[in-house]
Design a protein around this nucleic acid. Structure first.
Length: 353
DNA sequence: AAAAAGGCCAACCGCAAGGAC
DNA sequence: GGTCCTTGCGGTTGGCCTTTT
């Protein structure tokens, strides 16, 4: 038995909404609310529309305080940061941008922001490649390796935002709102708060909440969000509330989220763009200066990482909340990074090396 | 000036989660 | 506990608009 259709498809209008339909819907909802039942709503007001369509129209266009277009630099940064951190969870991203809808952000990302960032990065890559090609040829003449000089390249990383969350808060009220917002976000992602408002994070809690499974995106999502918040500017107020979380907390048997050999994505999201970013990050840990907020101090500073059997201690700093990649036995440290970058570059610029 | 290509965005679709019964 | 229904979400599509050839 198949699923029952949510509405009578034959008797339902599709396509763009007319001003009359908009007016009907808006007027009704403003006066009566949705009544908790979108499916029944169009019949009540005599609209030949599917309930889902009404809901979408209301949420994306008719409800008050909706902003369209004109994304600010600040919003760009937030979107980029959150996308890199949590992937295409548009509803969560939208929740951090008042007045923006998930659909709007999704469209904006797919049509503009993604290209903007990749374009920048490719441009830099090309100009750098021109320089390094000259160097390679010079080395080749001297009998040196043809492998690129990884130590002398300028940052490969695109000019991504360096601030996870902006600091537009000028009043205490806004700070509180923002804390509440972040709190809701963390709860949504699986976090819990004790009565005093602190995140409950006693090790067992988290261990129980998230299955011991490297594919658990919720766990990773939670970790990354906390990390994101904890690494942002100290002037950002939600951190005041979150700063002390996770002290002494352990993720028992926490699996690394990036497998060194297979270049798994940080959070297992399916976005190829995010994958590209993560690959770049992983293959170029020495180039992540200033990107601590996304990848953790250790990764940025090229310090030791844990292996899959170790617990990750959420110590005095929260910077280790992101599970870091493991250098497998097969490859080692810098060599691995070089190999991966070489392969990645080859993929992007076949025959260029 | 016209056609083609590309960009953009509103809306649709199908799936999954969660609640009600 | 199982089934049905509704909601919410992310991916995709179709059509309009703009730019390029």
């Amino acid at each position: 038995m198949g699923r029952a259709p949510c509405c009578d498809k034959a008797n339902v209008k599709k396509g763009p909404w007319s001003p009359e339909e908009d007016a009907k819907l808006k007027e009704y909802i403003e006066q009566h609310g949705t009544g908790g039942n979108w499916i029944a709503l169009p019949q009540k007001i005599g609209l030949k529309r599917c309930g889902k369509s009404c809901r979408l129209r209301w949420l994306n266009y008719l409800r008050p305080n909706i902003k369209h277009g004109g994304f600010s630099e600040e919003e760009d940064k937030i979107i980029c940061s959150l996308y890199i951190s949590i992937g295409s969870r548009w509803s969560i991203i939208a929740a951090q941008l008042p007045g923006r809808t998930d659909n709007d952000i999704k469209n904006y990302w797919n049509t503009r922001l993604k290209k903007k960032l990749l374009g920048k990065q490719r441009k830099e890559q090309q100009s750098r490649r021109g320089n390094s090609l000259k160097q390679d040829m010079k080395r080749s003449e001297n009998g040196d390796s043809m492998l690129p000089d990884y130590n002398n390249q300028s940052p490969y990383w695109p000019e991504l935002p360096v601030l996870a969350v902006p600091t537009p808060y000028s009043s205490q009220e806004q700070r509180i709102d923002s804390q509440a917002s972040m709190r809701r976000l963390l709860i949504k992602l699986g976090g819990r708060f004790s009565d005093d408002g602190h995140v409950v994070n006693d090790g067992t809690t988290l261990h129980n909440q998230f299955p011991n499974d490297s594919s658990s995106t919720d766990q990773q999502l939670y970790e990354q969000t906390v990390h994101l918040l904890s690494s942002s500017s100290s002037s950002y107020s939600p951190m005041d509330a979150l700063n002390n979380i996770n002290r002494g907390t352990q993720f028992v048997n926490c699996q690394p989220t990036i497998d060194g050999a297979n270049l798994h994505m940080l959070q297992g999201q399916s976005s190829s763009f995010s994958s590209e970013l993560q690959e770049m990050a992983y293959s170029n840990p020495q180039r992540l200066d200033g990107m601590e907020f996304l990848f953790g101090e250790d990764m940025v500073n090229n310090r030791a990482v844990t292996n899959s059997c170790e617990s990750i201690v959420w110590g005095d700093t929260t910077s280790q909340l992101v599970c870091l990649p493991v250098a497998s036995d097969q490859y080692g440290g810098i060599q691995q990074g070089m190999l991966q970058e070489y392969a990645f570059s080859e993929l992007r610029y076949p025959g260029a090396q």
